[in-house]
Design a binder for these strands. Structure first.
Lengths: 164, 164
DNA sequence: CTTAAGTATATGAGAGTTCAACTAAAATGG
DNA sequence: CCATTTTAGTTGAACTCTCATATACTTAAG
């Protein structure tokens, strides 16, 4: 099949998308690195652990929830363990598995980092958008992560820009 | 000021945003790495050079157009030069400056990579969105990159979800 | 003209990410 | 049971990115 190139509008949208996501990522990563001494990926890991019962998760489950590859998680948890923020225990039920546990120090580090981070998320994203845009943004992101429509052309007509 | 935490809806949107942008980035980066042997950042550099007159740009201008830091660009162009895809020349007008020039080999590499990349952009983003969503997405991204509204509360009412 | 300040880019160390290869422990199936 | 396959997780090398610092040239000031 011949390449379906982007038309002018799509080009513009695509480049805007790249610029915007880059901007958000860089802004947040810099803020966390500067104020909390950790990259955003580490913050995500701590968050997911803090939400889990016993502040404990299997490595693979943690990887999936934090949106990380297993290898990346493995390296990251190794660093977090060096800092004393996470501890690893053998999984009693499955000898291959490991449980990652958020320590009290880790929880404290997360609690210290959270306000500044959330404030930056707000400034970077929510403060610059209208409520309607936020609603559509969520639909868009959901569609990207789990594409429902198959072939081009006749996608199901979802509501766009509606306000309940 | 006390932290403005995210409410439940905002949390959901924020996490969807992270998951979606991660998904897009990883998908494209993997595709380019696998099929063209370059990371997405390098592809961007080649694209911007290919669009410039004489396929030539000052390093700083190239950095700005490709959305790269100067340091990152410097390292990247060094690698691209090793591959023979880019060449650096002293800037005649300004002895400090350097001109990055896309070579014929570099252009060929870009031309070879483009169809697969564009197809992946389409599959990952445009194919899963309705036209209305695409339009709003562009507005959203524009707002993120150059925030117009200042203090919270009274943002100017932009159109949301409209279709001309 | 000389010196100070500023601009353009490079460079090197440190850290995170990826990919492929590796270990170890379950599950599966004769 | 024993062999095979699958699953869980780690590891190391290669690569990219960031940050701080260095270099070279230009502009501004006296």
């Amino acid at each position: 099949m011949t390449t379906r190139w982007l038309d002018e509008d799509e080009q513009r949208t695509w480049r805007a998308f790249l610029a915007a996501t880059r901007h958000v990522q860089e802004t947040l990563d810099r803020q966390l690195q500067r104020d909390a001494g950790m990259p955003h990926a580490y913050y995500e890991i701590l968050v997911r652990l803090s939400e889990a019962p016993e502040r404990t998760l299997r490595m693979s489950e943690l990887a999936s929830r934090a949106g990380s590859s297993q290898s990346r998680l493995s390296h990251a948890v190794a660093r977090l363990e060096e800092r004393g923020w996470v501890r690893r225990e053998r999984c009693p039920a499955d000898g291959r598995g490991l449980l990652a546990v958020l320590t009290d120090d880790g929880y404290a580090a997360l609690a210290a980092a959270a306000p500044g981070h959330v404030e930056e998320v707000r400034r970077t994203l929510f403060d610059v958008l209208e409520p309607g845009q936020v609603a559509v943004l969520e639909e868009i992101c959901a569609a990207i992560v789990s594409p429902s429509g198959g072939t081009h052309g006749g996608g199901s007509a979802k509501s766009v820009g509606r306000r309940p």
